[in-house]
Simulated scan of single mutants.
Amino acid sequence: MRSVVGKELRLRDIQSKEIRDAIAPLIADGWQILKEGHKARLRCPCDNRCTTLPIPGTPRDAGNAAKRIKREASRCPLPEDSPQRNLTGMDRG
């Protein structure tokens, strides 16, 4: 796996409104957006940074990209006692 390198972006740096809406709760829960080429990568708040998700710079279908990000973010294996474990209201265990 490649190492994630790049400066941290702000939510407003993401062009697509659908993707911004999908990742806003994730960022509030500690996820980071890092610049990677003309796109970005979302990194989970786990101690070992177990999950990284690509965020397209110019998606063909922003709605589908937002759904994919939400779905993949819900799979992050956070510890049972973590307050960030239940981002979407679904149990991840």
Rank of each mutant, 00 (worst) to 15 (best):
R49D: 03
A65G: 04
A24Y: 00
Q32I: 02
T58K: 15
G89K: 09
P54M: 05
G63K: 12
M1S: 13
M90N: 10
L26A: 02
A62M: 06
D61K: 14
Q15F: 12
P25C: 07
W31D: 03
I69C: 06
I23M: 05
G57M: 04
T88S: 07
L11H: 12
Q84S: 11
I27Q: 13
S16W: 01
S16D: 11
G89V: 05
E18W: 01
A28M: 09
R60W: 12
K7Y: 11
Q15A: 15
G6W: 05
G30E: 07
D61C: 06
S74C: 06
M1I: 02
A22R: 02
R20L: 03
N64E: 14
K17F: 09
P77W: 08
L26F: 01
N48W: 00
D21T: 07
G89W: 07
V5S: 14
L9V: 05
A40V: 01
I55A: 09
T88V: 00
S74R: 13
A65N: 09
T88Y: 14
P77Q: 05
W31V: 02
A66E: 02
A22M: 07
M1P: 10
R2L: 07
S3Q: 13
A62I: 04
Q84V: 08
A22F: 08
R71Y: 14
T52M: 10
K17A: 15
C46T: 15
I14G: 02
P79I: 00
R68N: 12
K39L: 08
N48V: 00
R41I: 09
I33W: 06
L26W: 01
S16N: 04
I23T: 02
P77S: 10
D29G: 08
L78S: 01
V5L: 15
R92L: 03
K17Q: 14
I23D: 06
R68P: 00
A65T: 05
P25N: 05
G37H: 14
V4S: 01
T52F: 12
I27H: 06
I55H: 09
C46M: 03
L78M: 14
Q84D: 13
P59G: 08
A73M: 10
D29N: 10
K39D: 15
D47Q: 03
P25T: 01
A22V: 01
N48M: 00
I14S: 00
C76S: 09
R71P: 00
R43M: 13
M1D: 08
A66T: 03
K67T: 02
P79R: 08
I19T: 04
K70Q: 15
M90H: 12
I69K: 07
T52C: 12
A62D: 12
I33Y: 04
N86R: 14
I23F: 02
Q84M: 10
I23K: 05
P77N: 07
E72Q: 10
R85E: 02
W31N: 06
G93Q: 02
N48K: 04
H38Q: 13
N86S: 12
E80L: 14
R71A: 12
L78R: 09
P45G: 05
I14Y: 01
C50G: 08
P77R: 11
D13V: 04
D47Y: 03
L78C: 12
R85C: 03
T51V: 15
